[in-house]
């Protein structure tokens, strides 16, 4: 096979995040690829009316890294970060058009945090670093202080910022998924949802592992847009020798037919839903996503992560990023806010 390209623009990495040397089969044991059908062959769903879909996403941004010294002389890392989560609603879709897509402005949350690794600093003084509030015109940006335990590096704070965003996303997805008239899509695996509704699907843009074996993988390049693989069941991880929970139903689908110069796995995405669902319900979700996602897939002209990054999501991300505020302005406000007390101390 000649060499072929992968679709994303390289500064965004690639959708292919798996380890080629790793065992194809996941740590929880081999998935059951026969739960839905006996034959591992493409499924072409016939979905007449596409349901409305709610897609949850978030953005985050590290505004400034900081450092402090604990009384005992150990360095304390700090991170000013912002994140926002929201959802976009699209559909229901008819043959050619749908209801206008809408960003659910009322559900958007913008949060600001000051994460710090103040290991013991507050324990010693009994005083946590204060929240920092900066004024931007009439608006006030409150960076709430939050201690990150077991953080010994600055990168751990960045990871915590990301996790905070994911937590908020999960929370929002849980709330939204109570509306069962719509399909709720979540960016990434469903693990973080504690009590998802019955119509929640996680879509995984970056494939970390394939779960299925090499033989099954050969089906993927042959899928066409709108087709999916049969469901397979991924058992839950074993905790203390017994499986915790019901595991997940998962499937692959093709979001877009790509040009010949792209690798045929390039337009493939993995999706999953709760393993606690009745099989028929899970299959219906799979069918709906197979019909829906090619429609929402982005064009390489407007998105560097095309086709995986869905068009409504790109618009939501742009909106959320906009709501985080101007990066340079916030950086400048932080600088001012921190400089003022320091200067006062110097001149005192």
């Amino acid at each position: 096979m000649p060499v072929r390209l992968l679709p994303w623009q390289p500064e965004y990495g690639t959708a292919m995040q798996f380890d080629a040397d790793a065992e194809a089969v996941a740590e929880a044991g081999p998935p059951d690829t026969t739960v839905e059908r006996g034959v591992w062959a493409p499924v072409t769903p016939e979905v007449r009316a596409l349901p409305p879909v709610l897609i949850v996403d978030g953005v985050r941004r590290a505004e400034a890294h900081a450092m402090d010294d604990a009384p005992d002389g150990t360095p304390v890392f700090g991170l000013f970060g912002s994140f926002a989560v929201g959802a976009v609603r699209a559909g229901p879709f008819g043959a050619a058009s749908g209801a206008p897509a809408r960003i659910l402005e009322e559900r958007i949350r913008v949060e600001r945090r000051y994460f710090h690794s103040g290991s013991g600093a507050d324990a010693v003084d009994g005083v946590a670093p204060p929240d920092l509030e900066v004024a931007a015109g009439r608006a006030r940006l409150a960076f709430r202080a939050e201690r990150v335990r077991r953080a010994s590096t600055a990168n751990a704070l960045v990871a915590r910022l990301n996790q905070s965003m994911l937590d908020e996303e999960a929370k929002l997805a849980e709330e939204l998924s109570r509306d069962e008239s719509a399909l709720t899509l979540v960016d990434g695996p469903l693990r973080s949802l504690r009590s998802p509704g019955r119509r929640v699907v996680g879509y995984i843009k970056r494939i970390q592992q394939w779960y299925v074996g090499r033989a099954e993988l050969e089906l993927l390049p042959t899928l066409r847009a709108g087709e999916r693989t049969p469901l397979f069941h991924v058992p839950a991880l074993e905790v203390n020798g017994s499986a915790a929970g019901d595991g997940r139903f998962s499937w692959f689908l093709r979001v877009a037919d790509l040009d010949v110069h792209f690798h045929p796995l390039g337009g493939v995405m993995r999706l999953e839903t709760s393993g606690a669902l009745p099989l028929a319900d899970a299959a219906r979700l799979a069918d709906e996503t197979a019909a829906l996602l090619p429609r929402l897939a982005s064009s390489p002209a407007r998105d560097p992560r095309a086709p995986h990054n869905l068009t409504p999501v790109a618009a939501l991300e742009a909106r959320l990023t906009h709501l985080l505020g101007d990066r340079l302005l916030i950086r400048r406000l932080l600088t001012q806010a921190i400089a003022r007390p320091v200067r006062e101390e110097v001149f005192r």
Partner: peptide
């Protein structure tokens, strides 16, 4: 608002792109 490309108007009408 929220569109960047000429063709985005069609995406908006299709209900895919919020604008």
């Amino acid at each position: 608002e929220g569109v960047t490309l000429t063709s985005d108007v069609a995406l908006t009408n299709e209900g895919v792109l919020p604008a």
